[in-house]
Design a protein around this nucleic acid. Structure first.
Length: 426
RNA sequence: GGAGAGGUGGCUGAGCGGUUGAAAGCGGCGGUCUUGAAAACCGUUGAGGGGUAACCCCCCUCCCAGGGUUCGAAUCCCUGCCUCUCCGCCA
């Protein structure tokens, strides 16, 4: 959520900057709500003040044994007004909050203009696109030919966008999780955390997936109003909800492996084959909770931590800065890491690293105590994939294939694979 | 699943329906003392929001959440959520 004060002070500037994200802020609607809110709030509070004052004198008068009928009559006179005023105020307040809840975060000054991923700016590349002296195959062909990847059987029990894997692929998949978690905990200073995979609507609201993106979530039918998590970002970031963190606890750096569930509504026809866009996939997430002045640098570090994994796996990639139109709801700035896929002959997103500033923190009431001022202030939150497991598996299959369609195991994974160095047909 | 107990500030923990936004302790901050630190002593210290250009200041709201009773609710009533203890079941 944006700071309402910012909107009151300079709504035209906010509207201008949100346009970079392709969001049209209804400034008239806001100004209307704001003037209503102000009038009703001050009026309500005036009446409350009168009631409180009179009630207090009733107590005092009674204590002295005086007659209080006159005072009771006075309070009764404003009772109706007060009730109406309170009701109207609460109604406007609700509209006001709902309006604010649908406004995305303001993009950072550095965010390039643009509408689609074609307008993203390449920041750096690492490695050279893999070359073969044969025609590179796509991962799903490779996997199915080896008998280790099976989409057809998955369709029978779950429909499209699900997969079944066997033996070495599952082990490779598990090895990737281990490599990532070990790297982040041992080399990058993260604490590993385990979290619920079912969360409430409140939790999703806190990180910004609700109310706007309800269609992207899987809701579980039960008495609890649970949703399957679309990313570990949701439960992990929610660990600081309603907290006032001591300054000494910051920065908090969590890494977390979870499955993720996404309905992929609105992506019909996109990536219908293969493991790229599944309803269920695994991810190792990186989440930072920091003091405001540290978040800009934190995004750089977090992104590098994710890159480290690709470097260890010797997978060529590039980092792009997302343009305004491609930026997520809660993010002010995002770097995507895209890995080279020889089968597809293009870079594909494998990680998305975002700084949310205080946007999520305001929704979560996540604060830290500033020892200089002694006051609680909002933290900044960041998150990024470090990395998406399924897509990393895809990248390995395509970059480490040989002419026979077998897969060489990257050296960094040998210790996690019982020193198996080659994956062959089942 | 059955039976009890309870949810109060950063933490622990008091609180006859009426100057209680809340005793006390801990912690934090400031000071005295000290070469310095500790101890001791004194003072200070909840959060959110609104009014104001802003400070001072003033006002409102908040004692798990949502309703209700009342002139007035942390306190009484209802519902929900959560926690703890005991029993049962169980990966």
């Amino acid at each position: 959520m944006l700071d309402p004060k910012l909107l009151r002070q300079d709504i035209d500037d906010v509207a201008k900057r949100l346009l970079v994200k392709g969001f049209e802020l209804d400034t008239n609607r806001f100004n209307e709500l704001e003037s209503k809110r102000k009038a009703l709030q001050t009026h309500t509070q005036e009446l409350q003040n009168i009631r409180n004052t009179k009630s207090k004198s009733i107590g005092q008068a009674k204590a002295q044994g005086q007659d209080v009928q006159a005072l009771l009559d006075e309070v009764a006179k404003i009772a109706g007004d007060l009730e109406n005023s309170e009701k109207e105020f609460h109604a406007v307040q609700q509209d006001y909050d709902a309006f604010l809840a649908n406004i995305p975060n303001i993009p950072d000054e550095s965010v390039p203009e643009g509408k689609t991923e074609d307008d993203n700016i390449e920041i750096r590349t690492w490695g050279e696109p893999t070359q073969f002296d044969f025609e590179a195959k796509e991962h799903d062909q490779l996997g199915e030919a080896l008998g280790l990847l099976d989409f057809e059987t998955a369709v029978q029990m779950s429909g499209s966008r699900f997969a079944i894997m066997y033996g070495p692929f599952v082990r490779l998949h598990r090895a990737l999780i281990q490599l990532m978690i070990d790297t982040h905990t041992r080399e990058h200073g993260y604490e590993e955390i385990y979290v619920p995979y079912l969360v409430t609507d409140k939790a999703l609201y806190g990180t910004g997936q609700l109310p706007k993106f309800a269609d992207d979530q899987f809701k579980v039918e039960s008495e609890h109003n649970h949703y399957l998590i679309p990313t570990a970002e949701v439960p992990v970031t929610n660990t600081v909800r309603d907290q006032i963190l001591p300054e000494a606890d910051l920065p908090i750096k969590y890494t977390c492996h979870t499955p993720c569930f996404r309905s992929e509504a609105g992506s019909y026809g996109k990536d219908t084959r293969g493991l790229i866009r599944q309803h269920q996939f695994e991810k190792v997430e990186l989440v930072w909770v920091v003091k405001p002045e540290e978040s800009v640098e934190a995004l750089e570090q977090l992104t590098q931590h994710a890159e480290t994994i690709l470097q260890k796996l010797q997978l060529p990639y590039r980092v792009v800065a997302l343009c305004g139109g491609d930026l997520g709801f809660s993010a002010t700035k995002t770097y995507d890491i895209e890995v080279w896929l020889p089968g597809q002959q293009r870079y594909r997103e494998i990680s998305s690293c975002s700084n949310c500033l205080d946007f999520q923190a305001r929704r979560l009431h996540a604060r830290w105590r500033n020892t200089e001022t002694g006051k609680p202030e909002l933290v900044h939150t960041l998150n990024g994939s470090g990395l998406a497991i399924g897509r990393t598996l895809v990248a390995i299959l395509e970059n480490y294939q040989d002419a026979k369609g077998n897969i060489q195991v990257p050296e960094a994974l040998w210790p996690y694979m019982g020193h198996v160095r080659e994956i062959t047909a089942r």
